[in-house]
Nucleic acid binder design. Structure first.
Length: 252
DNA sequence: AAATCTGCCAACCGCATGTTG
DNA sequence: ACAACATGCGGTTGGCAGATT
């Protein structure tokens, strides 16, 4: 026979995590580490399944998380990596210490996809779509204006479309500069082959990181964190959580 | 001021893969 | 070798906040 089930899901809490739950989970992990996620909620006194605890820790509570919006440089690197790796968010996230796959995935769907569309690029294949036709369609909205007002509106639309085109060309140029030296076409071909065969050649260990970050650097930073777990009990975020919890307790 | 729309993000769900007995 | 389970991953969704009508 195999192992025991992960969780029975009956009577388990779902939805947003409270400060108190965060505090319990973080306190438990900092004191005991992670050996088995199934046991974590039970031992930490949480009415959550292990999966939910794991997700909360990885995406929100981990002390090595980098907060704040992604920089333009990070965004550019995500585009490069996506061209190369596709939707393998965890692989992409591994190039950004302190960033989570969920964060990068969300950022991709909310920001980067739009940016690529403006560039006239297909976010999936990273290839050009017929941008010029789109602009011409926009100009053709009202081909024969009758009144002066309509003529003015038409001119406005034309200018808007032309400005959009100029902006797009600039952005496209940037994109070419960004990806040109990286031979996206070659990557795409490699990736098509590799994704079919699940080749390990794209793993962090084997492929050099274009930004010069290595998996050993990441491991090193994690090791530093592990080494300093004791002092973590006084780190800022944790203190803040503790204060918030005390505040809530005082309210009750 | 209220209603509606839009963007964002945390969290969930289900599947794939790895691990254990 | 196989079944049962744990873990990791990517897709999707629900709900909140701010913007717009």
């Amino acid at each position: 026979m195999g192992r025991q089930p992960c969780c029975d899901k009956v009577g388990l809490k779902r939805g947003p995590w409270t400060i108190e739950e965060d505090h319990k989970l973080m306190n438990f992990i900092l004191n005991n580490g992670i050996h088995c996620w199934r046991m974590v909620p039970k031992l930490a006194g949480l009415l959550r399944c292990g999966k939910s605890c794991r997700l909360r820790w990885i995406n929100y509570l981990r002390p090595d998380l980098k907060r704040g919006v992604l920089s333009e440089a990070e965004e550019d690197q995500i585009i490069q990596l996506h061209a190369r790796l596709g939707n393998r968010w965890s692989k992409i996230a591994s190039h950004f210490p302190g960033r989570t796959d969920n964060e990068i995935k969300n950022h991709w769907h909310t920001r980067i996809k739009k940016r690529l569309k403006i560039l006239g690029l297909d976010p999936v294949t990273h290839t050009l779509v017929k941008q010029k036709e789109k602009v011409e369609e926009k100009i053709e909205i009202n081909p024969e204006p009758n009144s002066l007002k309509e003529q003015g509106e038409t001119r406005e639309k034309e200018n808007e479309a032309k400005m959009g085109l100029d902006e797009t060309i600039d952005l496209l140029h940037d994109y070419e500069e960004l990806c040109g030296s990286l031979d996206v076409g070659l990557w795409l071909n490699q990736e098509t082959t590799n994704s079919n065969s699940q080749s390990p050649s794209l793993s962090l260990k084997d492929s050099p990181n274009p930004m010069g970050e290595s998996s050993s650097m990441k491991e090193d930073s994690i090791q530093k964190w592990v080494d300093s777990v004791d002092s973590m009990l006084s780190w800022d975020g944790f203190n803040q959580l503790e204060q918030e919890l005390l505040f809530l307790e005082n309210l009750q």
